[in-house]
Write a protein that binds this DNA or RNA. Structure first.
Length: 424
RNA sequence: GACCCGUUCGUCUAAUGGUUAGGACUCCAGAUUUUCAUUCUGGCAAUAGGGGUUCGACUCCCCUACGGGUUGCCA
């Protein structure tokens, strides 16, 4: 691409960042980065009622969390202001262009843009060639671009901004597909060159319905709360409507940047699958170094404790529960687990005394083997009751890791504690 | 209603006219791991329906059905 690529994400502040919007931002970002271009963030805050600091913050925080760096608010480039509310003099100038060209007329105090009555053919980078008929005025009435209160409507400001900000590629949701001929007409009236357009499919709920604010997975701000890591969400979102065309599925952001292409974006809407999103998150947790993993989850537990559950959780939010048995001397013991080890009391008693006589705690392994031999059972039959004694659960971290973290005295205490709960 | 886009396992998707229609998530069954998890192997499961074109169609064309979008002095 000879021209420097400039993409943009142009959300309006609504109080939260929708995953669909987040994915639109991601595709724009990936595309720009792929070609070494810029990704512009423009805030469409013409609706004063919803334009609160909190609403704007939701957008910034969401994109920051995902790691999508932008040119725009808080990171100014040469094409500001990046808030539409601060660009009215620009709109005024561009409105005059249409006025002197005779393309607008007044209608009950508002100004309408006069469409050319012809067929409009556009070439969409995702959808291909599409022709819309503007010859019939009753189907496509001239659109209002300036309200009777003097403010400008979306279609007008959106186009003027894209033009004045030097946007080369407009990647947006498919809900804008039918707006594009309107925008093309405007650009033609300005005698400007249009950007390239790419309309990406929408994200739907699991049942195929439209995703609204309260639906599961809809608000990006919920993802960190639920224990997702940003690189996993980026990965999962990229897979919704785009495919690398091979069997790979887990990527870093850098890998996505190098693989991403609009050619391989789908046309059909994608449904949100919480299961797979969580699996992708687990894969990313597994890929982290123990240091990264521990750092991403602030809890009171020690490094060893947290690191020991890295392979056991698929969400960061599961960690506190997963390590709780280490910290609570009177941790609850799962009744179902007790049931399964109800006959193990004699073995545990034997194991406790072996442990007690152990001079070197790092040799706990041998003590387990020795006890098993003495009791004429397989080591595996001893491991499970020991696990229940130490953690109160049927599953959990590696047994030897647990023994090491708890230490000799506490391990023995916990074994004795369980035996008192079992029939002897 | 009109116009536009779409439709491959339940879900995300691969297969640019020739494959036993592949992979992944979920679920189930095994294996490995002295325990747990990871991992591995296997299984269930799809071209919306009907017409064409073609030696041959998931792929191209038409019709129907279904889904989504647009049709604002919202963005």
């Amino acid at each position: 691409m000879s021209q420097t690529v400039r993409t943009r994400f142009a959300p309006s502040p609504t109080g939260y960042l929708h995953v669909g919007g987040a994915r639109t931002a991601l595709f724009n970002w990936l595309f720009a980065r792929h070609f070494g271009g810029s990704f512009v963030l423009r805030i469409e805050d013409t609706d004063a009622a919803r334009n609160t600091p909190e609403a704007r913050a939701a957008i910034f925080e969401g994109l920051q969390w995902l790691g999508l760096d932008w040119e725009g608010p808080e990171n100014e480039g040469d094409c500001g202001p990046y808030f539409q509310s601060e660009r009215t003099t620009i709109y005024e100038q561009w409105f005059q262009k249409l006025r002197s060209a005779g393309r607008v007329y007044e209608d009950e105090g508002a100004w309408r843009f006069r469409f050319e009555r012809k067929q409009i053919t556009m070439t969409d980078l995702v959808c291909g060639e599409i022709t819309i008929d503007y010859r019939d005025e009753s189907n496509t009435p001239d659109m209002v671009i300036r309200r009777s209160d003097g403010s400008f409507v979306f279609h007008f400001v959106n186009v003027v901004d894209d033009l004045t900000m030097g946007i080369t590629h407009v990647i947006r949701g498919e809900d804008h597909l039918m707006n594009t001929p309107k925008h093309l007409q405007l650009i033609e009236a300005f005698d400007e060159t249009p950007p390239k357009y790419a309309h990406i499919p929408l994200i739907l709920n699991g049942d195929g319905s439209k995703m609204s604010k309260r639906d599961e997975g809809a608000a990006l701000g919920d993802y960190p709360k639920k224990g997702f890591v940003p690189e996993a969400v980026v990965n999962f979102l990229a897979l919704l409507g785009w495919s690398p065309k091979d069997d790979s599925e887990i990527f870093s952001a850098d890998e996505l940047i190098s693989k991403f292409s609009l050619d391989s974006v789908n046309r059909a809407p994608a449904r949100f699958d919480p299961n797979k999103c969580q699996w992708v998150n687990q894969q990313h947790l597994l890929k982290m170094s123990p240091e990264q993993f521990v750092a991403s989850c602030p809890t009171e537990a020690s490094f060893e404790m947290i690191a020991s559950v890295q392979e056991k959780v698929s969400l960061l939010s599961e960690i506190p529960e997963a390590v709780s048995f280490y910290l609570d001397p009177d941790f609850p013991i799962d009744p179902a687990a007790i049931q399964k080890v109800s006959k193990a009391a004699p073995y545990l008693v034997e194991l406790a005394s072996h442990f007690e006589n152990l001079a070197d705690w790092t040799c706990a392994n041998e003590a387990i083997s020795a006890t098993a031999t003495q009791c004429q059972i397989k080591p595996g039959q001893l491991m499970f009751p020991l696990r229940v004694a130490l953690s109160g659960k049927a599953g959990g971290p590696d047994l030897h890791t647990i023994l090491g973290i708890l230490g000799q005295t506490e391990s023995i205490r916990r074994i004795r504690r369980l035996t008192t709960l079992l029939p002897s």
